[in-house]
Design a protein around this nucleic acid. Structure first.
Lengths: 201, 201
DNA sequence: AGATATAATCTATCGTCGATAGAATTGCAA
DNA sequence: TTGCAATTCTATCGACGATAGATTATATCT
């Protein structure tokens, strides 16, 4: 074999395995077949590599899945905040709707980032991202906390709104208690509106 | 034939000894070290048996864990309903407090029955038990739904209350957003009280 | 170009898991 | 006792996560 031939074959060699490819493959498998189906071997096989390759880019399986979860949270945060109107009332309504839609459209990602599957994830890392997300909700909800409300009050209300949204999502996904979007926004308004003890809408 | 019948009936009168032991051992390991630590082998070892014995009493690991989850739900249901006062307002407050206390005192069982761990469980079976539990909440909440409220209205409100409680519990356990009991009852009352303030669309 | 160092990837393997087959054991009945 | 059936075991399978060490490919330097 001549040198040129060797160079040709080498240059046609598949590209170097990258962290991003691995993440994409794992995410694709998880979204399609659930996170149980995401094994070191299945991801490597999807990419045409041997399994140990993944350990060049990720400490272990938990590291890989945690990265996917953190990116999903960032994605949700972007969805929630982009082009959000200034008006507090409208903003909250839109945010609730966007949260619910994200959950429906990215069910598996939602389950992963909320630890609703068996997938091993670093709860501390995910929690940091999630708290950051919650602060965004807090900023939006803040104006509705009342007249002399502090930032802490806004955050308090945001925590509870977040809890309600996640609770309804969890029941919707796990328990076959189907909630319509309208019921979700309705309940959210009731929870928030009750804070001022003033009827809303 | 007579022999077979006798043996059948005798074995039915004394069904396979050990099912209860297995459940207890598995539950004990799960409560102490998390459901990840509950393996067919660890349970069998705790009992001093060989692993395959467990398959005489349970179809598979999921069957075993599902049974524990269903019993946990029944336990919660008993806690919620025993000696509940007739007065609707007081009953709801007590129920919320009992729910929260159960979650704090039986964290691992709560996580298992809500699928918050990797533990493989039969979601359909658990869901049936959970819906039954939710109906109990519905009966209690019913009087608070309003003047001309139907049973469906009570159930609707119960679903949302349930969602709020579980959402706050999930955030409390997973996300390091600590909620005090007072905040939980407070939010619950706001959600329910708002039902009479916000007109339904 | 050839030699060499570094990076990239592979093969082989370990220990653990859930699960099953089939053998060994026990206990009761005729 | 003999024999059947319930009970429990040993041995094993395939899949998993993970690691060690060999192997190959690329870059660098003469």
């Amino acid at each position: 074999m001549t040198t040129d031939e060797m160079r040709m074959s080498r240059s046609r060699r598949r590209p170097v395995a990258g962290r991003e490819q691995i993440l994409s493959a794992a995410r694709a498998i998880g979204v399609r077949h659930g996170w149980r189906a995401v094994t070191i071997r299945s991801v490597a096989h999807e990419l045409g590599y041997a399994s140990p390759l993944l350990y060049e880019h990720f400490r272990d399986k938990e590291d890989l899945l945690t990265q996917i979860a953190v990116e999903a949270i960032a994605m949700l945060e972007n969805r929630l905040t982009e082009n959000l109107p200034k008006d507090g009332n409208a903003a909250v309504l839109i945010m609730v709707e966007r949260y619910w839609t994200f959950m429906l459209e990215h069910t598996q990602l939602y389950r992963l980032m909320n630890g609703m599957d068996g997938a091993p994830i670093d709860k501390d890392a995910v929690s940091r991202s999630a708290q950051n997300l919650c602060q965004v909700i807090g900023d939006t909800v803040q104006p509705l906390a009342g007249e002399g409300a502090t930032a802490a009050d806004g955050q308090t209300l945001a925590d509870e709104l977040w809890a309600l949204l996640h609770g309804m999502a969890a029941l919707h996904l796990d328990r076959f208690v189907p909630f319509e979007l309208e019921r979700v926004t309705n309940a959210a308004l009731r929870l928030i509106g009750g804070a001022r003890l003033v009827p809303k809408i």
